[in-house]
Design a protein around this nucleic acid. Sequence first.
DNA 1: GACGAGTTGCCAAACGTTTGGTTCACTTGC
DNA 2: GCAAGTGAACCAAACGTTTGGCAACTCGTC
Lengths: 341, 341
Amino acid sequence: MTLDGPGTRSRATLTSLAAELGLHVSTVSRALSGDPGRVSATTVESVRRLAEQRGYRSNLTARALRTGRSSVVGMLVPRLTDEVLATVYEGVDLASMEADYVTLVANTLDDADLREQRVDLLLGRQVDGVILADSLLGSNAADRLDKAGVPYVLALRCLPTGLNVGTDDLLGGRLAAEHLLSLGHRRIGVIAGEDRASTGVERARGFLDACAEAGIAIPEHAVVPCRFSVTEGARAAAVLLDAAPDVTAIFAASDNVALGAVGTLRERGLSVPDDVSLVGYNNLPMAASMPVPLTSVDSRLVEVGRGAMAALLDLLDGGRPSSLRLAPELVVRASTAPPRA
Amino acid sequence: MTLDGPGTRSRATLTSLAAELGLHVSTVSRALSGDPGRVSATTVESVRRLAEQRGYRSNLTARALRTGRSSVVGMLVPRLTDEVLATVYEGVDLASMEADYVTLVANTLDDADLREQRVDLLLGRQVDGVILADSLLGSNAADRLDKAGVPYVLALRCLPTGLNVGTDDLLGGRLAAEHLLSLGHRRIGVIAGEDRASTGVERARGFLDACAEAGIAIPEHAVVPCRFSVTEGARAAAVLLDAAPDVTAIFAASDNVALGAVGTLRERGLSVPDDVSLVGYNNLPMAASMPVPLTSVDSRLVEVGRGAMAALLDLLDGGRPSSLRLAPELVVRASTAPPRA
DNA sequence: GACGAGTTGCCAAACGTTTGGTTCACTTGC
DNA sequence: GCAAGTGAACCAAACGTTTGGCAACTCGTC
């Protein structure tokens, strides 16, 4: 049971320290600041000692009010139960912690109204900047932030215009294609991402481009669009297998989708990788620990998060960071093998 | 590319509205407050209209400084990439949003030093209260919060002392046991949770108690402790099958662990549910969408989050909420069946 | 011993709210 | 017609910082 009421002893404040030391509050403030230019070394020392002793901690609220900077950044995500976003968040959080910032997440649940509400919420909280990790193509969140003069960075997804940090999804798709082609697969199906999300579109395009360059045509009916979820993956795999039952390999635009596909394959008595090879995307921890470990394209999500936060911090410092596109890496596991002779 | 520099027009403030209306700032403040008791209806009307027009939004920082309440609650979790915690967070977030609060998450990565640092961070940010969802038994975060006079609620995990909100893990274990027993299973293995976490311990105990009451003894070697991850689940399942190869059913203390177990079973040529029935815990979305849909105990994670936040809000309002223990529900799917004749 | 430079610390204003106290005019009751 | 009561607005202080300006004091130098 916690005690109600305020803390027993009220927290030490700049003013209380000043009083105790017989100094002026401004002197104390400077003594504790990063650059105690105008105060003597001995004073600095005594102030710091007392501060330590009293457990003084700067009141960030007051500081924010005075300086106009809250040291809070917002992050918009569809939902954190999506492990992809949670992983990006982890990177963002790490980087912001190092910079003494704090990250305020807001779930938009991919709902336009809710997103607006959430943006307002963040703006109301005086965030210094925002990381947009939910921006489907055509989102208007960016406009609103522009209008409010709050800088932002797009993470993972990307908009034609705007500063964005992500992995090269075209290249990722290409890596997957080259892997399957080099194993000897020729009849390949693709479970593409959502049409609305730049990620899924580009992964599929990279894959198809690479196939085309190798002289392998993927018929249109072997490319099935799909939302990023396990159940959707299962459904899309069924559609794919109905339309192109002779495929020997499938590229799924996300690990979740691949997991769903595994279920469908299994239902139909097809085994991975003996009957059908499978490549996922993102290389989430689950990829490594699936019953049949999944070959997957690592999209370096933590680094994307870190990079996005780094770019935002740069922006906040008046810099002009440029967009960053990390190179994905293929991680080969047991789910891919040469096609059956 | 975002514009740097502050917003073009500086945000409307109480003072600017007052100036424009020729009113005193305090009058404007009251007019916009929830209970505009001391100001005439016509004034309220005109103030509200102008506020709307200028897009006024209260500066929460200033308000926090003045009132000493930040409308921010902190939440300590091991990590949000754990879907269980992410789901609880979702509940917390929903409830806090409804109450015009905002939730600041802090990952502790189950590291003692980091946890301390994070608690400090939250305290430094003047959070009004904290939800502890990472508290392993013996954590000292609670003490620190007590000392600082910041109220807190334990979610999911529970400490012998302290206000906590969770599901009844004893009952959950019991439900799983009753289900398997009623299907006719007699030789059952248990993959228990971590020893340090109250959840895992109680789930296993509830399960074993129910078995004992039914006259079925589970030998000690058929109970394997295990951390909550897929790979650990796979390992633990292997240990279990080595020690008790004749089990016809397995109860896993989490869905992730169950997923790991599926892999191990598969490797050994055992099929679910034909050879071995499997019950998971938490009923995450993945349970429903696994290749063989998993029977699982729904631990109502979103509601736990909501409940924890509700309790915290009550506490903040000076109430004396009591601990809450929700009843879990068994969701039967394809992974359980009567033992082979 | 006066002067300039440098050092050290104090002063005061400001950030945008909230809120108890005060003022002032107007009604009301007798 | 006057005291009391009431409704509506204003006033000012406070929350804890930060920061430009300023005063005082110390030194070295001529």
